[in-house]
Amino acid sequence: MIIGLTGGIATGKSTASLILNEQGIPVIDADIIAREVVMPGKEAYEKIVAFFGDDVLLSDKTLNRAKLGEIIFNNSEKRLKLNEIVHPAVRSEMKKQAELHLSDGNPLVIMDIPLLFESKLTHMVDETWLIYTHPDIQLKRLMERDGYTEEQAVSRIKSQMPIDEKKELADVVIENNGTKEDLKQKLLRLLQEVKKTDFMK
């Protein structure tokens, strides 16, 4: 079984990923894979350089992410092209890693995908779990964590799909309005429920 884990900024998704990984469950992180597939020698890297040119490379031949970001920020056509190169490579690598973990005898694999709903990737998983935090707590946590003003924090939260919209789409909603220990206990209980289902026997 593959579970798609998602959340919003400062809701605790990364903490949940760590807790699940500590229980011996393989976690495939979409953000990490997105960085790996554009390393020198990878197919996506070659395609990016072929399209954008050597200007987007640093002296060590790795991608200059800041430069690439500037280019696509101001050009929707080029942004679309970059997504067309990177997204399929990320999906393919995630699927490959999930299949390896399952064939190794792991009955459960977590795919940590921040933009699970926005990128319409629910077809890649069997069930979606959302780490949900009340919007007021989300705002407070973000301000404390990153030292943002309220205005800065609000603008970052507003750049994402509202957490309450994600709540409507998720199969399982895990409330994370308390401590890290509260979240851990909820996840452990959820894993116990999952283990009672047929596929974990």
Rank of each mutant, 00 (worst) to 15 (best):
I3T: 00
P162Q: 11
M1S: 03
W129I: 00
E118K: 11
K180S: 11
L169R: 12
E46Q: 12
E150R: 14
L139Y: 07
D146G: 08
E144I: 06
V37F: 06
K158P: 03
F199L: 13
A34M: 09
D164I: 13
E144K: 13
E118M: 09
I48C: 03
L57E: 05
Q160D: 07
G147H: 09
K78G: 09
P40W: 14
F52C: 06
L58W: 10
K96R: 15
E144N: 13
A66W: 10
I157R: 10
E93Y: 03
K196T: 08
K61L: 14
E22P: 00
K81W: 01
D54N: 14
L139M: 11
K184P: 07
V27C: 06
G69K: 06
Q152I: 08
M1H: 00
Q160I: 08
E22G: 04
T122S: 10
T6A: 02
K13R: 04
A89W: 04
A34P: 00
L57I: 00
R79A: 04
G8C: 04
D60W: 03
M200L: 14
D55L: 14
L187T: 06
E70T: 08
G178S: 13
S119N: 15
E127Q: 08
A66Q: 15
A16G: 04
A10H: 02
N74Y: 11
I157T: 02
E150P: 01
I28S: 02
S155V: 03
L115S: 09
M39W: 09
D104Q: 13
D104W: 08
P162K: 10
L57N: 05
I163D: 01
I33N: 05
I3E: 00
H101E: 15
M1G: 01
F51V: 10
H134Y: 15
I163W: 06
N106L: 07
E175L: 10
K186F: 13
K42D: 03
K196S: 12
D164K: 13
Q185R: 15
E151W: 09
H101I: 08
L108E: 01
D55E: 15
I137N: 10
N83D: 12
M143D: 08
D198C: 13
L115G: 10
E151K: 13
E175S: 10
V49H: 13
G105D: 09
D126A: 00
Q185T: 14
A10L: 03
V27L: 09
F117R: 07
S76E: 14
K81V: 07
L82C: 05
